[in-house]
Nucleic acid binder design. Structure first.
Length: 498
RNA sequence: GAGCCGUUAGCUCAGUUGGCAGAGCACCGGACUUUUAAUCCGGGUGUCCUGGGUUCGAAUCCCAGACGGCUCACCA
């Protein structure tokens, strides 16, 4: 066996502790008590259930199972803390209860071991709710110790690479992923109640579309074609609207081949929903109720406390034009953002890139993203995005340069994107052609021409409102998690080299 | 992709001017029948991220690299 080694954050040490534990396992096996041959253990209660129902359970025999996370030995008595999904509960082992031999078997137990115990619910002198153990079984041996109990596990690299250790050690991490699960459940229930139909559409697509982003490419051997991992389900979902399903949604993974940051992971979970005979204003109402509901279901409140600042998620949310929001924050009038030249001046003044190659829409987005977005703490719908950057959205009748589109913001985070869907096949074809030109000119994120989608529109799509919501962003907003990696169990990391 | 910062015991971290590698918790041995960061006595368990270089001597200084974090760029 090699000696101790440390490799960039993940611990693989074969240190003294591991050697001791392996030796202990060998002794157990030699004695015919191999813990890994244990199969089931029927428990009667979870830790929290015992604490919450103590009054009615006091004196009862119960069976619990979990991970041993702490031990306090006192010679002829010993305390231990057992952690299960619901929390921890104290165990009390006494030699006069277990007998000398059984009590001696406690030597087999280490922090981190998985044990099942049977015993009587009681309270100790210090009023701690405890199980006085009458019998116990080692159900699985931990050859490595869990993270240290007092300081916990802080090393972010280990937290992400070995998430199980993070979940064992950090209550807050466990809480965030439970919230995430509840949020997704809540979104489903809400949409179900509104008669939306949950559907699944291809993740591997011959043509990537529905968003402006670069895709991952893969290859199908039998068909001998390249396929793209989807960057959005949008165009398939709208085909279903054409097909008359009228209210559809999908919650699923999308993949975008771009940089990683505290707000971006290459794969993330997106909710997209489409409702026929609705427009973007209908969708605003849908989103504000749905998010408020998700907060209530996952946190028990529609109010968030963020750095001492209260955020109320109940409808209605503020609605503000992109241009008004910029003017309010920076005093830059909409007129100055009408032409690329005057916008360039504004960008120069603000210290933003203002080169001749930068498009007007990009400059506006930069100004907004840098100076306005971080201040949108209260839930806000920002409207009036330029049609030029919204190739799938219907233009406003009174001003075709602007789209019937909005983005929801909470706690400074962009949660998604929504609009009245463009259902005019001819105009859609024109928009795609414009995108294709941008693509030919080097814009790798531009939308590719999708004749098959235009064909679908030619059969007639009712006026439709649609939304895309980043589930991770929503969970970040609800939990206050500072990084998207904190709400994705296994975030993308660079592989470690040996 | 660029800049800045980080990587030392199982975990959390300290490490002075370049001079034998440190603390707390964990762990091992002993004591202890109501502790809960148990306590008391004894024990340091290490590829100081990796590879070069400077030096009598490198955790420390220099160069290159790996991984991570943050900011920016990219990106909804």
């Amino acid at each position: 066996m090699k000696g101790d080694r440390r490799e960039g954050g993940v611990f693989r040490q074969e240190g003294e502790v591991v050697r001791q534990r392996r030796a202990k396992l060998v002794r157990l096996r030699d004695a015919g008590r191999d813990p890994f041959r244990m199969t089931r253990f029927d428990r009667t209660h979870l830790a929290r259930e015992i604490r919450e129902a103590f009054d009615s359970l006091e004196g009862d025999q119960v069976r619990v199972a979990g991970r041993l996370v702490a031990q306090r030995r006192h010679g002829k008595a010993a305390f231990a803390d057992l952690q299960d999904l619901s929390g921890t509960i104290q165990l009390l082992f006494r030699v006069d209860q277990l007998g000398e031999e059984r009590y001696g078997d406690l030597r087999d137990l280490d922090d981190g071991d998985i044990v099942g115990v049977e015993g009587k619910v009681c309270r100790t002198r210090t009023q701690e709710i405890t199980i006085a153990v009458t019998n116990f079984a080692l159900l699985a041996k931990a050859l490595r110790p869990p993270p240290e109990k007092w300081h916990g596990l802080r090393d972010v690299e280990i937290r992400y690479r070995q998430r199980y250790l993070d979940l064992i050690a950090n209550d807050d991490s466990r809480r965030i992923f439970i919230v995430r699960s509840r949020v997704i459940g809540s979104l489903r229930r809400f949409l179900e109640e509104q008669s939306f139909l949950e559907v699944e559409t291809p993740m591997m697509q011959p043509l990537h579309g529905g968003a402006l982003a670069r895709p991952f490419v893969t290859h199908h051997n039998a068909l001998d074609i390249d396929l793209y991992l989807r960057i959005a389900p949008e165009l398939y979902l709208k085909r279903l609207i054409v097909g008359g399903l009228e209210k559809v949604y999908e919650i699923g993974r999308v993949f975008r081949n771009e940089g990683i940051s505290t707000r971006h992971n290459p794969e993330f979970t997106m909710l997209e929903a489409y409702q026929a005979y609705a427009d973007y204003r209908t969708i605003m109402e849908l989103i504000e109720s749905m998010v408020a509901r998700a907060a209530a279901d996952s946190l028990g409140s529609t109010r968030l406390d963020r750095d001492g600042c209260e955020i109320e998620l109940s409808p209605p949310w503020r609605r503000v034009s992109l241009y008004t929001a910029i003017e309010e924050k920076l005093g830059v009038t909409p007129e100055r953002l009408e032409t690329a030249d005057s916008a360039r001046e504004v960008c120069s003044e603000l210290g933003l890139p203002a080169g001749p190659e930068i498009l007007l829409s990009t400059m506006i987005d930069n100004i907004f993203g840098r100076f306005v977005q971080p201040t949108l703490i209260e839930p806000t719908f920002v409207t009036d995005y330029p049609t030029a950057v919204s190739p799938l959205a219907k233009a406003r009748a009174d001003n075709p340069k602007l789209a019937e589109r909005f983005e929801p913001f909470v706690a400074g985070l962009e949660l998604g994107n929504a609009f009245s869907e463009l259902n005019d096949p001819e105009e859609q074809r024109g928009r795609f052609e414009q995108q294709a030109r941008a693509r030919a000119a080097g814009d790798q994120d531009a939308h590719p021409m999708d004749d098959d989608y235009v064909l679908a529109l030619e059969y007639g799509m009712p006026p439709t409102g649609g939304l895309g919501l980043g589930v991770e962003r929503l969970v970040m907003a609800l939990t206050g998690a500072p990084s998207i990696r904190d709400v994705i169990l296994f975030p993308q990391m660079r592989p470690q080299t040996e």
